[in-house]
Design a protein around this nucleic acid. Structure first.
Lengths: 236, 236
DNA sequence: TAGTGGTCTAGACCACGGG
DNA sequence: CCGTGGTCTAGACCACTAG
């Protein structure tokens, strides 16, 4: 494990365990250096990672402070993470509506960058305790995901890709707009036709930049909330 | 100007000027080092910045590639930037509905972290060529923004804070959900009651972590699209 | 196995904040 | 002014990719 990740994890643990809140002042950079015996750049690397994740913020000339206790956002879909649709919420059941192979993905998926070659088409509904949560229609390029079964698709496809195929999801883009539900969508989500919904088109890429998944998601407005964050040009 | 920012800007210029597309292979790290006479870490810092902004991606053992031509997203509201509501779209007019001082912000704003002290309340409508775009209801803490006038509020408040007050917006959080419009909102947006809308609560902080602005935005679903992106734990 | 990006260090110097 | 975080370098060594 890389040193900066070890340190980052330690700090996260520390914040969770002590239940620290926004504004709490963390140890200084040189204290972390001494405690762990790391170089300054390595400590800054760890802090930068946490800064990007929204956990802390650094103030030049002053110190390092807690921004958010991770785990305070359980109910939210985190748009700024490389996840399909659920953040920390694990009480989600999956109902598979369709799994088939296609010679070619639909045009809109190819326009978003999915290779124009054979793919899997997966249609699922995700259900929380309080009802249907999201309709998900995904296309997986067989170039990157050569095999999918009903069983895999009933669980987490991303976990399968990571663990069984040993591939890492590296980055994603999400395009959103608000729509009125069609009759069919409303039925799946147990809502009324013309009820509001958020539609998200997602594009996921592997470490080599290859696009392997393009999806269209339609969320139930009654039980879905979303979260996004940004930091100004932070690094080192 | 910092070296890594100079390099980052040069690369962006290069991509725009040559109109490069996703997958284009950029010069190697050591070529940038030699061309600019920079150290390796500095070059990596610049590339990391661009990676975080979604402009490029680095593939270990292979090279550096273009991910997106900046400026390909003009029509989208970029949720992953520290902007109020418009990304690159500059054809936006502002209609000020209200500007007043309050002893205390409303409860929900204080819960989001706005100091429980005097503030400005600003209500505005943003209008694009094709009609009303968003209703914006903002609260600015007088601790950070001691003075606002009608004139300032008719322009860009963020520009004013940056330029006149010399303060930097450092990070933000955005909480979203989909709603049905009330009668009043519908009238402002020239839509119908119960039409869909995206409501976003935004929290903005300065470089010292101080929260200075909490806002509630309600977007017109007919002319608003949103964009978000993420990268897996990138740094150095 | 050569080439390319990633991690890490030690240390010099810079820039900002607060007393 | 001192302390704290930020930038930058040179260079060693690691890890992954591709031919």
């Amino acid at each position: 494990m890389k040193k900066y990740k070890i340190l980052a994890n330690e700090i996260i643990e520390f914040i969770i365990e002590k239940n620290l809140k926004r504004g709490y002042k963390l140890p200084k950079v040189n204290e972390f250096q001494q405690t762990f015996g790391y170089g300054k750049s390595t400590v800054l690397q760890a802090l930068t990672l946490l800064d990007q994740q929204g956990i802390i913020y650094k103030v030049q000339g002053s110190g390092v402070f807690v921004r958010r206790n991770p785990g305070d956002l359980k109910e939210y879909v985190a748009l700024t993470e490389n996840l399909g649709f659920y953040s920390n919420n694990q009480n989600v059941k999956t109902r598979v509506l369709k799994l088939e192979e296609l010679r070619l993905p639909p045009k809109w998926a190819v326009e978003k960058g999915l290779p124009a070659s054979p793919c899997y088409s997966v249609k699922r509904i995700r259900i929380k305790e309080d009802g249907p949560f999201v309709i998900e229609h995904s296309y997986y390029s067989q170039q990157s995901v050569p095999y999918l079964s009903r069983e895999i698709v009933e669980g987490s496809i991303f976990s399968y890709i990571r663990q069984a195929l040993g591939k890492d999801i590296r980055f994603s883009e999400k395009y959103m707009h608000v729509v009125k539900l069609t009759d069919e969508q409303a039925e799946f989500l147990q809502l009324e036709e013309n009820d509001p919904a958020l539609e998200i088109k997602e594009v996921f890429s592997l470490s080599d930049g290859q696009i392997f998944d393009v999806s269209r998601l339609v969320y139930n407005y009654k039980n879905s909330k979303f979260f996004s964050q940004s930091s100004d040009e932070i690094l080192s």
